Simulated assay, not measured.
Amino acid sequence: MEELDTIDLQILELLQRDGRMPNSDLAQQVGLTPPTVLRRVKLMEERGYIRGYAALVDPIRLGLTVTSFIFVETGAGCNLIETEEFLAGLPGVQEVHRTIGEWCFIVKVRTATPQTLEQLIYVHLRNHPSVRRTFTHLITSSPFETTALPLPAAAERAF
């Protein structure tokens, strides 16, 4: 995969802050012409640096007030890909991460009530044949969350 230059990184940083930023504004902020910036953005999309664009929706406004992280241990010999697909398909699941150590997966879940979380755990999750045990952390608040990734240029400026 080809390296990104400092202008590409600036474009990525700006798009992470505002994915709907007009191309003309992007061009002005990085000091290039709009066609040149558009070409760079399209190339980063084609190469997979930009996977897509999304709206950031407030979960609290939607009534998803319960956030939890569920640690999942699977049984020996289970098919990890099938388990990943099962976990990703559970209602309210936002993230599934494989881990190394005592637990096989960490799953981030948002639900409307503690009762819907309980149903997810006891009815769906713990009844799955590959799930050996679970451990749940209930989150009381989330003072900081971001979808932005740390970019090399941004990390250097932070120090």
Rank of each mutant, 00 (worst) to 15 (best):
R126W: 03
N79M: 07
Q16S: 01
R17G: 13
G101T: 09
M21K: 14
H97P: 04
E84M: 15
L43M: 06
V72Y: 05
I100F: 12
E2R: 12
L87D: 07
T36P: 05
C104K: 08
M44Y: 05
G89F: 07
R133G: 06
T99P: 02
I106F: 06
T67K: 00
C78S: 12
C104S: 14
E73M: 09
Q16V: 07
L4V: 09
T146F: 04
P91V: 14
I100A: 12
E2T: 14
A155P: 04
G77I: 10
V107T: 08
E145K: 14
D8Q: 02
G77E: 08
Q115H: 01
V107H: 01
F159V: 15
P91H: 07
A154G: 12
R98S: 10
N23Y: 10
G75S: 09
P114M: 11
H128T: 11
G77V: 12
T65A: 10
A112C: 08
L117P: 04
R40I: 15
G101S: 06
Y122C: 03
V72D: 03
D5G: 13
L32R: 13
A55S: 09
R17H: 11
E102H: 10
G63N: 04
E156H: 09
L90K: 13
V30T: 06
A112Y: 04
Q119Y: 07
R132P: 07
A54S: 10
G19R: 00
E118K: 15
N79I: 00
E82N: 14
L120A: 06
F135S: 15
R39K: 13
Y49L: 09
L125I: 12
G63H: 07
R133H: 06
F105H: 12
A154N: 05
H128N: 13
Q94N: 05
V131S: 02
S141P: 02
A88W: 03
V57S: 01
T99H: 04
I121D: 00
R51G: 11
N127E: 10
L38N: 14
W103N: 05
L43R: 13
L43T: 09
R39T: 15
V96F: 02
T146I: 01
L38E: 11
Y49M: 04
P143M: 03
I121S: 01
T67G: 01
Q115P: 02
S141Y: 03
F105P: 14
A27T: 03
E45I: 09
T140Q: 05
F135W: 12
T65H: 02
D5Q: 13
V96N: 06
I81Q: 13
F86M: 10
V66L: 07
